[in-house]
Amino acid sequence: MAMLTLGFVSMAVFAGTEILPGDVAEAVLGQNATPEAVAGLRHALHLDYPAHIRYFLWLIGIFSGDAGRSLANNLPVTELIASRLPNSLMLASVTAVVSVPIALTLGISSAIWRGSFFDRAASFLTMSVVAMPEFLIATLAVIIFAVNLRWFPALSYAAGMVSINQFFNQFALPVFTLSCVLIALMMRMTRAAVIDTLRSPYIEMAVLKGARPIRLVLTHALPNAIGPIANAVALSLSYLLGGTVVVEIVFGYPGLARLLVDAVSNRDMPVVQACVMIVCSAYLFLVILADIAGVLSNPRLRYR
């Protein structure tokens, strides 16, 4: 199933890059190139083959472990990815470690005290954050923390991490920006999932057994909400690999998303394909993890 999804996505991406006007030869040689030069480069890059042949060539390459070379600068795709993927993974994991616990705590406590001042305040805040464009948050963060307060550097290169201090300095602003949006999303979905299970008859039964609100949520509602919560978390986190373009550009962070965007503008098909495959696999991996969590938390699926 997962393999099928990957295959379908790769075809969609390939078709997408085909539809875009222009190709890598025009992009590399620029506007003043002669038609002969463009044709020559196309021939050299096998771009004059029909589209389906090129797709199958790429597919054969992938299956034999060769992702091909970048059409734009002739570097092996694996090398390009290898230079960016660890950065992206690092940013993603730090953000996940920061945002998931905060989001779950906020979501669950909002559900416990739903309708209270705390819940309303949290709702208002998260709604505002979700409504705010990411680049605005990033820019505001730079203006406040880097320019005015001078706490952190405005750019983060993710290179040469030596001390905890440096590490913190590098990641503080990008992680803060990404966390804002993620926490808001995950918190709202957690709250909705828990409140949804709070409407079940067994919750009323627990109330009539004398259970207090905290017990209701933690021992009765939460175990039944793990499935939907895990899915919400997986969906949010999958965004951390491919969807961080804005943050990477604002902070000059050398991650996967920027590589992908550059490759698209160069019509650099092998690089685009490789990046998309990685993002897609990460997404599938997270969703499978979420499903496993859902099954483990549900005795009806665990014991038949």
Partner: peptide
């Protein structure tokens, strides 16, 4: 409803 009144996860 006994079936609905028991928490399915416990």
């Amino acid at each position: 409803s006994a079936a609905a009144s028991f928490n399915p996860a416990k």
